[in-house]
Amino acid sequence: MEIEARNLLDEALGTLKGGMVVVQDSVQTSASFVLHHLLKRSLSLHSSDVVVFLAFSHPFSHYDRILRKLGCNLAVQRDKNRFFFFDMLMTEIADGDGEKTSGDGLVALYGKIQKVLSALPQELKKSVTIMIDDVSLMEVAAKCSTDHVLDFVHYCRALTSEIGCSLVVLDHEDIYLGTERPTFILQLEYLATVLIKAEPLATGLATDVHGQLTVLNRDVYDGQGIYRKKICNFQFKVKESSIEYFYPGSRT
């Protein structure tokens, strides 16, 4: 495995060091493949990243099988202390007695992450990625205390600026569309340096094109000391061992 061919998504993302990525999807189009891609990218041979993964929607075996097909063995990485998996499927952050408990639960969770990070050797500390595979489920686990979840994300975000690690968060956009003031998703969007949206095609389902991605990168350095926004738009097709990205209309 030498330097892998860069695809459109990698180009749009840039380096990601110390940034926050918010991935949004909907019921029709799942964007979990973006997480798989970032996971693989962080754990590939020529990078020395460490990934802390908070799994709310799928167990380890699920990710293990998928990543193995992508050419990355999670179990081995876990043994090498480069991949830390927190299985949160059954964990209740709040006991239902009120807000205080959910806050405590999240503080404890943050404490665990911090503990993992502080145990790392110095040279690895700079390149840590924290991934949360479904923030909406985290909200449910914390029983409605959305503010506490936001606080948690803020804390993780503070970590990213402190020691230069990055944060990747998956959320579902359509949950908030009906609400009057979708504070939560707006806050997330505000915090994000890179925003990735997966949408179904406007023309309906197709077997050749699974959907389209919009990547908004706020952190593009144009070489003259000015940071600019960059928006990329392309379509994708998910396969077992890879994901194809292409510009609309470029495939026959």
Binding site: V27, Q28, T29, S30, S32, F33, H36, S61, H62, R65, I66, K69, L205, A206, T207, H210, V238, K239, E240
Partner: peptide, 17 residues
């Protein structure tokens, strides 16, 4: 609307829903 995709990332696209 949705078909279970365990242990795989490939969505199942149905002919018609």
């Amino acid at each position: 609307h949705k078909v279970a995709r365990f242990n795989t990332q490939v969505p199942l696209i149905l002919d018609t829903t």
